[in-house]
């Protein structure tokens, strides 16, 4: 907490929800703006995941696996089983993609369990005013991933079914008729019915992850407002009560949140596998 002046709860929360960016955005979409904190933590966690797994992979032996190798193999085996259960074709990309998504999103989400003020307070110490440490509470990050997945869906759909096959799938079902004239009339309806769920996939992927993590972070922020007055509130009994209450509730929420962050990483991964498996299927 800033010791100089006491923030109101509103100011505190707004402060925490502000990204570290190069400049203030001018509208809902402004591609000259970049969230430095999201990019920093996203890359940092990518390096952490990639580096540690690469380290384990480089030292991996076919003998008895030990320590970190055993852990990495556990994760890889788990992901591999998930992919094999859902997808029966051959795709060299799908399993590594699923591993990347699960581990990276999990690490994003895990940042949420760190005390909400810890890293921002450290950043303030070196003169950085705003810092959002959970990349998955940034819509740009979650959309960045889901749009990549969406592009892969389109790519594999066209690759497996051909451009005609893909468009045919969008235009000729669910309603079809043997009469060409009637079929022509049904095409617009089919297009609407097929394109909406197709486009909804990346949106729901991104918003689900964002929403869950944003809500989780918001709960931590709300609990943190209980000790908004810092050391000063330790002077009174009610002040102590609020601190103890915050501790208990934040602890309970953190424990529950461990489930949420794992589950959300898992859901993102499984849905990606399912969507890409569907892209490979012929109807």
């Amino acid at each position: 907490m800033a010791a100089e002046h006491t923030l109101t709860a509103n100011e505190y929360i707004l402060h925490h929800l502000t990204f570290l960016s190069n400049k203030a955005p001018t509208g809902v979409m402004d591609f000259s703006v970049i969230h430095l904190d999201s990019v920093f933590f996203s890359v940092l966690l990518a390096v952490l995941f990639g580096g540690s797994f690469y380290f384990a992979a480089r030292n991996a032996t076919a003998g008895q696996p030990r320590g970190f190798q055993a852990f990495v193999e556990l994760v890889v085996e788990f992901i591999n089983d998930q992919v094999k259960d859902t997808f029966h074709g051959t795709n060299e990309l799908l399993a590594p993609l699923a591993l990347t998504i699960f581990c990276w999103v999990f690490l994003f989400n895990a940042m949420d369990v760190l005390p909400v003020d810890l890293l921002p307070a450290l950043a303030r110490g070196v003169g950085i005013e705003h810092l959002k440490v959970v990349p998955s509470t940034d819509l740009n990050v979650t959309f960045g991933m889901s749009l990549t997945v969406f592009i892969l869906i389109i790519y594999y759909s066209i690759k497996c079914k051909g451009l005609g096959g893909f468009i045919g799938e969008l235009a000729l079902q669910p309603f079809s008729s043997k009469n060409p004239l009637l079929q022509a009339l049904l095409v617009p309806a089919n297009l609407v019915l097929e394109i909406v769920p197709l486009v909804a996939r990346p949106i729901s992927l991104a918003l689900r992850l964002y929403g869950n993590l944003f809500a989780g972070e918001m709960i931590f922020l709300l609990l943190a407002t209980l000790s908004l007055h810092g050391v000063a509130q330790l002077a009174s009994f009610s002040g102590w009560l609020y601190v103890v209450l915050q501790f208990l509730l934040a602890f309970a929420w953190a424990v529950f949140h461990l489930l949420v962050i794992t589950l959300q990483a898992f859901i993102f991964m499984v849905l990606t596998i399912v969507y890409l498996a569907m892209a490979h299927e012929h109807h």
Partner: peptide, 24 residues
């Protein structure tokens, strides 16, 4: 708001997928 972070994230994501697929 939606901004450049989106594309940077996509780039990082694709790079990480490539790295995982190629090495890990």
């Amino acid at each position: 708001n939606i901004n450049l972070t989106l594309f940077v994230q996509m780039l990082v994501f694709v790079t990480l997928i490539w790295f995982t697929k190629r090495f890990v």
